[in-house]
Design a binder for these strands. Sequence first.
DNA 1: CCATATTTCTTTAAGTTTCAAGTAATTGGC
DNA 2: GCCAATTACTTGAAACTTAAAGAAATATGG
Lengths: 164, 164
Amino acid sequence: MILDSETKAVELPEDHGDELRLWLRLLTCTNLIEGEVRSRLRERFDVTLPRFDLMAQLDKAPEGMTLSDVSRRMMVSNGNVTGLVERLVESGHLDRRTSDADRRAQVIRLTKAGRAEFRRMAAEHELWIADIFGDLTPKDVRELMRLLAKTKASAQKSAKARTE
Amino acid sequence: MILDSETKAVELPEDHGDELRLWLRLLTCTNLIEGEVRSRLRERFDVTLPRFDLMAQLDKAPEGMTLSDVSRRMMVSNGNVTGLVERLVESGHLDRRTSDADRRAQVIRLTKAGRAEFRRMAAEHELWIADIFGDLTPKDVRELMRLLAKTKASAQKSAKARTE
DNA sequence: CCATATTTCTTTAAGTTTCAAGTAATTGGC
DNA sequence: GCCAATTACTTGAAACTTAAAGAAATATGG
């Protein structure tokens, strides 16, 4: 506790510059890589990152997902997914049908063509990522994984506390 | 070197799953925090993240910056900055004038009101970030800083190699 | 000086994104 | 069964974003 000249309790503003700098670096780093992946996807396959990301989610769910599932997994809004799916159905990459169990829900899946195209893109994408992280040692990778897991948990805790 | 049944050299596809998982975790982590900051900025100050980011750049440059400077620093396209600045001039946060030295260039600065509002927001923003990263020890922070710097350098090298 | 290249910024089109409001279907409590 | 709350999705408005093309000013190299 600190008392000022008139003997009232005051809060000394603590220094949080380190955390701020960390956040800016995290953001810079992610934006740099994301921009690079975006460029390569456009150059090489003429596809946007959101489309690629959505197809990646569906590739992991052969039996399909609802739009809400996708929305939660991708951490984007419902309305966003509606538009994305619309365009991907239009271009023949996705198949969409109303759920048998719940007529509110739309189940979407990769079409055969969509899956083939995604696999083709994903194979190269994996090489790009390996190259982008190429200067990191296996130990660096492990350590980053650990610290980012801890960061994620901390952020989730903070977000949860805010919305309660 | 590996030879297949017909005695031609083939590449064994190496496993890059670790790097891919690291990238996904990095992305998830950043999106989580970015979404949280975005929510709080809207809730608390009714301001968008891009506006806040632009004002943050200008706060560090009292003498002003050109649109190109901003574009490079924020790692976004020129056209994007044009629109952002338009709206911030409109709302009285920014002042804009043509450069004396180079009549192509527009120099933008925070107005007095814009600076005051930014400082008010930035003070809270710093506390949010400190809270979000709150479970990380000082050592964690240092280590993350180091590993992200290494990651950034690696990504820049990879990007540079591609565009040559 | 002059032609060419580069830089700065704007504009356009298409796509992405959010929030908020609205519709339709389901669930839960009574 | 019925009503209220919740859930799934769509729609609409505004903002953000990019890539690409173009206009204006400046820089560069004969």
